[in-house]
């Protein structure tokens, strides 16, 4: 099944780093992508009032476009991912509305186009063991705090790709890349999202809570798959960002780097902090978890090794 890439509004511009690096990753991993020829707004935030499926026309229209070509849709921005996947779910749940919507957008959409995130493809199609073998530049000196935020995993019954209370995909990913994965409590928190338009002090406190907890756990990099989190962390991160204490990355930037992509293709341009220095140091350091060996991707053990290990007695 052909994979159509849906970039959304932010990736071609304010999150170019995400877009460039993701394309480089897919290239190096042999994941074939084709950008959708015509795409429209995903609706940004998924509308939560219950009544009107017509509010989900924009995302459905994108899916109908992919349906015409007979493929699936891959996206990176979690706003797009959440909105498209949930709209699809809502559409499927209301078969009696299909006709009126299809008449309106001039299509014959059936609700069956799969919506996937690149992280899903890495987990289910590439596999972390295989990925570890492809690592050319292990990320030895990076102490990575994976940040999931809200929309990548919730709500579970509609998104359903990881346990929203106990996800492991990014931990496994960065173990495979040879980085040290840091366990900290606030990886599922809200970054403040677009409350930053209005309540900037509050956003600052939300961001600080997350970053401080990551730094306290020893992280020097926090990794997201969302331009919104990325922006909030860098813009509202205060001293922690100003002093280069913690750097914010899209997961694809570090993945591309580890896979040996040309540095120019790894994004790394739109950062507020001095990421170049961090990365030079990181690449010079020896890999932490043995990338490319059979131990990579061995579950969540790396994440919990910093003190959260369950007592053995429990497992018996």
């Amino acid at each position: 099944m052909k994979t159509y890439y849906y970039p959304g509004c932010t990736l071609p511009d304010k999150a170019r780093d995400f877009d460039t690096s993701a394309r480089a990753c897919c290239e190096l991993l042999g994941l074939e992508l084709e950008e959708m020829e015509r795409w429209v707004c995903c609706g940004s935030a998924f509308k939560l009032d219950h009544k009107n499926i017509m509010q989900h026309l924009a995302p459905i229209r994108n899916l109908a476009e992919v349906h015409k070509e007979g493929g699936r849709l891959m996206t990176l921005c979690v706003f797009c991912y959440n909105s498209l996947k949930r709209a699809n779910y809502a559409f499927l749940a209301e078969p009696d509305k299909h006709e009126v919507i299809n008449d309106f957008i001039e299509s014959d959409y059936d609700g069956k186009v799969p919506v996937v995130h690149l992280l899903e493809m890495l987990k289910d199609e590439v596999g972390f063991e295989a990925l570890a073998e492809k690592v050319k530049r292990p990320l030895g000196g990076l102490r990575v705090a994976p940040f999931y935020g809200c929309l990548l995993l919730r709500p579970q019954e509609e998104i359903g790709f990881e346990d929203p209370e106990n996800p492991t995909v990014m931990e496994k990913l960065f173990e495979a890349l040879g980085a040290e994965v840091v366990s900290y409590p606030h990886r599922l928190e809200c970054c403040g999202s677009y409350l930053s338009l209005k309540d900037r002090d509050h956003t600052t406190s939300m961001v600080t809570r997350v970053l401080e907890s990551a730094v306290e756990a020893g992280a020097n990099a926090i990794v997201t798959s969302c331009p919104m989190c990325n922006f909030n962390f860098e813009f509202f991160g205060g001293e922690l960002v100003a002093r280069d204490t913690i750097h914010t990355f899209y997961f694809t930037e570090l993945l591309a780097l580890a896979l040996g992509a040309d540095r120019k293709l790894c994004g790394l341009e739109q950062h507020e902090t001095d990421v170049d220095r961090l990365i030079d140091e990181a690449l010079a350091a020896p890999a932490t978890a043995a990338a490319g060996s059979e131990t990579a991707g061995s579950g969540t053990s790396g994440a919990r090794a910093s003190g959260d290990q369950a007592p053995d007695a429990r497992n018996g």
Partner: peptide, 10 residues
Amino acid sequence: KPELGYGRYE
């Protein structure tokens, strides 16, 4: 009820 940390914290 994974949010309560049972099994993760002794």
